[in-house]
């Protein structure tokens, strides 16, 4: 049962990753930006507030 749960968790992560990537490709900044965003490397929005210090 543990292995089945773990397998479905990995399938779920893969499925949601593909779904989010598809959404980001067509409705946000494109494929490359979506990939970097999902890797946690996207442009930080908080930095746009002029947070220079």
């Amino acid at each position: 049962m543990f292995q089945k749960t773990l397998t479905l968790v990995l399938v779920g992560v893969l499925f949601m990753g593909i779904a989010t990537l598809t959404y980001g490709t067509f409705y946000d900044k494109g494929f490359a930006a979506s990939v970097t965003g999902m890797m946690g490397l996207g442009d930080d929005e908080h930095g746009e507030d002029g947070d220079d210090d």
Partner: peptide, 17 residues
């Protein structure tokens, strides 16, 4: 788990995702 993981990873730099 998939949705939570993606939400956590995109928290900093990809607001739409």
């Amino acid at each position: 788990v998939g949705s939570y993981t993606i939400a956590y990873l995109t928290a900093e730099g990809a607001p739409v995702l």
